[in-house]
Amino acid sequence: MIQQIYPSPSHEYEFELNKDMHFAASHYIPHEDAGDCQKVHGHTYYANITIGGNELDDSGFLINFKHIKKLIHKRFDHTLLNKDSLFSDEDPMKFPTTEVVAKTVCEIIQEHLDTLEHHPVCLQVFLRETPTSYVIYRPKKGRVS
Score class of each variant (00 low, 15 high):
71 L>F: 14
70 K>E: 15
93 M>H: 08
85 S>M: 10
88 S>L: 00
77 D>K: 13
95 F>H: 08
92 P>W: 05
81 L>G: 09
69 K>I: 10
75 R>C: 08
108 I>Q: 00
90 E>M: 05
83 K>S: 14
72 I>V: 15
93 M>E: 11
92 P>H: 06
107 E>G: 04
86 L>M: 15
105 V>Q: 05
88 S>H: 02
89 D>M: 06
98 T>D: 03
109 I>G: 03
83 K>T: 09
69 K>E: 13
88 S>C: 08
100 V>Q: 12
92 P>T: 06
97 T>A: 04
90 E>H: 05
71 L>Q: 12
69 K>A: 09
107 E>Q: 11
84 D>H: 15
90 E>R: 06
76 F>V: 07
100 V>G: 01
74 K>N: 13
106 C>P: 01
91 D>A: 03
108 I>P: 05
74 K>C: 12
86 L>D: 09
83 K>V: 06
81 L>E: 09
68 I>Q: 02
103 K>G: 08
112 H>C: 13
96 P>H: 07
106 C>W: 04
92 P>L: 03
68 I>N: 05
81 L>D: 07
90 E>S: 09
70 K>M: 13
72 I>F: 05
112 H>I: 05
85 S>L: 14
76 F>H: 07
93 M>R: 11
75 R>L: 15
83 K>H: 15
80 L>I: 15
83 K>R: 15
94 K>E: 02
97 T>P: 00
80 L>D: 00
111 E>D: 14
78 H>A: 12
72 I>Y: 04
108 I>H: 00
75 R>E: 14
91 D>Q: 04
101 V>Y: 00
111 E>I: 02
